[in-house]
Write a protein that binds this DNA or RNA. Structure first.
Lengths: 336, 336
DNA sequence: CCGTGTTGTGAGAGCGCTCTCATCCCGCCA
DNA sequence: TGGCGGGATGAGAGCGCTCTCACAACACGG
C-alpha cells in the first residue's frame, strides 16, 4: 500500500537520501546507481508524497487561479476553458497543480488573502480584476508571486500578461477604413475597465492616422452586453445619425448593433459594415457572420503560467509585462 | 514568520494537543480552555499547515475536477464558470480545495489515474466523459471517491449527477405540440453521447404521448454544431420535406436550422417554430430570440460537490444518482 | 476512606520527505 | 607507499501536525 521512499531504498539497496536525489533529478549520483533506483521506482510504481515534500520544502507546488465573482458572469464563451487549458499545459509540465479559487464576496476575498499569505499556495494568477482591486498589490507586497491577466487599472508593480486591445481595435478600424468607410460608429465597453478603454484608444488612433476627424457623437457608450448596445445604436439612428460602419468592442454588442441596423432597414454589409470583438461563438452564428478580433486566450494562459514559473524559480525581479497580439478575422459582416 | 501549533500552545499556556483539539473543533475541551486558545489563535493569526496535516491524516482536503480535452472544446458558453462556481460554493464551506486537471491526451489521462490513485487528491469529479471512458470505473474500483457529471454510457456503479435530458426534450416538444405543430423535425447531437440519446428519447416520447406517428425522416443527425445542423435542414428542405417546427438538441444547431429556414424563405415562428437546448448566450442573441431548454448548471456543480463530500465522509455505500430538472424558456422563435 | 469511572490535558511517537554533515572510497601525486 | 582531495553515499535530524495513550483530577457509591 504505502509506497514510500524507504521502500524504494530498500528495494534498490541504497539509502533514502540517494533515492531522493534520483527522484529530484539532482546532481551527484552514479549513472549505475541511478539506473538501479529508477528501476525500483518503476517496479514499485512509486509516487512521491506531496504533503511530506511540502512540509520540508515549504512549497506546495500548486498555484491558485483566482476568478472573482463578477468575472464569472462576464465571460461567456469558451474563455475559461481555453485560459485554463493554456495555464495547465505549462503548469503541468512543471508538475504544478492548478487550484481554483472563486471568492464570491468581499469576505471570501479577504479570507483568500490570508489563505495565500499563509503559504498554502505558491502563487496566484489573477484574471480580469475590476478597477481598483487591492488584491494584487496586497499579495505582491507580501512577496507572494502574482501574475495578473489583463491590465489592472492601477499601476501596480506586478507581472502582467495582457492582450493588445489597442492593436486589436486598430486592426478592426483600419480594416473598415480600408473598405472605404468614413463615418465609423464605435460602441464601447464600460470605461472603468481597461480593455474597454484600450479598444476606444485603438479606435481613435486608427481614425487619426487616416486623417479622419474625430467625432464624439460616433462614440456610443455600451457595457459589453447586447441590449444596451442595441438601444444605443437605435437612439443614434433615431437621432438622425449618419454612419457607414460600426466597430463594437464585443461580439455581443455587435449583435445588438446588427439588430438595430436591421430594424432601420439598412443592409449589412452593403450599407453598414460591422466588426465585433472576441471572435466568440456569437460571431460565427450571426447572420451575416461577424468580422471580429480574435484574442489568443490560450496563449495568454500559457504566458501567465510561464511568468508564474519564472517568479517561482527566481527571486522577484523587476515586474515584467507581456502583451499578446490579436488577429482580425474577416467575415461577411464587413463585406469580406 | 512560522505560525505553528507549538507557538499557539505556548501563547495559550496549553499543550499542542489541546490546541489541535480546538482547531479541529473536537470534543472534550473545557469551554474556558477553548476560549483562551481561540484568542491566541486569533492574535497570532494562526493558520494550520495543510501539508503537515495531510501527512498524518492521509487526506489532502482537495478534490480534482477532471476536464478532458474534448470536453473543453465542446462547451462554449458560461458552462464551466457556472459549474465551477457551484462546485466551489459547496467545497469551500467544507474547506476543500478544487484542483483542476485537464488531461490533454490518453497518456495524460493514464498519468492522472496514477496521480489520483496515489492519494494526492481525495476524490475526483469527472464531467461529461465520452462514451466508454474507463476512468470512472478504474477509480471507483480502487476505492477513490468519484462523482460523474452527466450520465456516462456504461453502466458503472458510481455516483452520478445529471440533468434530465429526457425531460428537457419532452418539455420542448410538448410546447411545440401545444402550439399546434405536428410535423416536428429534430436535429440530434452525436448519438454516442448520452445527452444526445436522451434528448432524442424525450422527443420521441412527447410525440408518442400526443399520439403523433413516429416518422424517422424527421430525425436529422447532427453533432451539436451549427454547420452540420444547417446542412441537414437544408437537405431536408431540398428533399421536399414538410415540417412546421424544429427541436434542435443544442442552441448552436437551432441557429443552424434558423439559417436554413430563412434561406428557404420560411418565417420563424409563423411557418416554422424553433426550440433549442442549453439556453446559452446564443439563444438570446439570435433573431428572433430562441426558445430554449435551460439546464441548472450551477446546481449541478453544487450537487456534485455534495455527493463528493458525502463519499468523503462516509465509507462507500450504494451509488447514488441525482437527476436535476430542466426548465423551458419560451421566446420569440416559438411564437411565445 | 478506598476503588472505580469519567473527563480534561499533556507527552511523545511518528507521517514521508529533504538536506546537512559525516563517512567512505578511490585515484593520484610526492 | 603514504597522504590527500574530491566525489558518491549514508545517517539522522527535523518540517508541523494528529492521535494514542498515560496521567491527573475529581465525583461518587459502597
Amino acid at each position: 500500500m504505502a509506497k514510500t521512499l524507504e521502500a524504494v531504498a530498500l528495494a534498490a539497496g541504497v539509502s533514502r537520501a540517494t533515492v531522493s536525489r534520483v527522484v529530484n533529478g539532482s546532481s551527484r549520483v552514479t549513472p549505475e546507481t541511478r539506473r538501479v533506483v529508477e528501476k525500483a521506482i518503476r517496479r514499485l510504481a512509486y509516487v512521491p508524497n506531496r504533503a511530506a515534500r511540502s512540509l520540508v520544502t515549504r512549497r506546495t507546488d500548486s498555484v491558485g487561479l483566482v476568478i472573482p465573482e463578477p468575472t464569472t458572469k462576464l465571460f461567456g464563451d469558451p474563455f475559461f476553458p481555453r485560459l485554463i487549458r493554456g495555464i495547465n499545459a505549462v503548469l503541468g509540465e512543471a508538475d504544478q497543480l492548478l487550484v481554483l479559487l472563486t471568492p464570491q464576496s468581499a469576505h471570501d476575498e479577504e479570507q483568500l488573502g490570508r489563505y495565500l499569505l499563509s503559504g498554502h499556495l505558491d502563487g496566484a494568477l489573477l484574471v480580469s480584476l475590476h478597477g481598483a482591486d487591492p488584491l494584487p498589490g496586497l499579495l505582491a507586497e507580501r512577496g507572494i508571486p502574482v501574475v495578473v491577466g489583463g491590465r489592472p487599472t492601477r499601476g501596480i508593480s506586478v507581472d502582467v500578461v495582457d492582450v493588445d486591445n489597442v492593436q486589436g481595435a486598430l486592426q478592426a478600424v483600419r480594416h473598415l477604413i480600408a473598405l472605404g468607410r468614413r463615418r465609423i460608429v464605435t460602441v464601447t465597453g464600460p470605461l472603468d475597465m481597461t480593455p474597454a478603454q484600450d479598444r476606444l484608444t485603438g479606435y481613435r488612433s486608427a481614425l487619426e492616422e487616416a486623417g479622419i476627424d474625430h467625432d464624439p457623437t460616433l462614440e456610443l457608450a455600451g457595457d459589453f452586453e447586447q441590449t444596451a448596445a442595441r438601444e444605443a445604436v437605435e437612439r443614434f439612428i433615431a437621432a438622425g445619425g449618419r454612419f457607414d460602419a460600426v466597430f463594437a468592442a464585443s461580439d455581443a454588442m455587435a449583435l445588438g448593433a446588427l439588430s438595430a441596423i436591421r430594424r432601420a432597414d439598412l443592409r449589412v454589409p452593403q450599407d453598414i459594415a460591422v466588426v465585433g470583438y472576441d471572435d466568440s461563438a456569437l460571431a460565427l452564428s450571426s447572420d451575416p457572420p461577424l468580422s471580429s478580433v480574435r484574442q489568443p486566450i490560450e496563449e495568454m494562459g500559457r504566458e501567465m503560467a510561464r511568468a508564474m514559473l519564472a517568479q517561482l524559480g527566481a527571486p522577484r525581479q523587476v515586474a515584467r509585462s507581456v502583451v499578446l497580439a490579436t488577429e482580425l478575422i474577416v467575415r461577411g459582416s464587413s463585406g469580406g
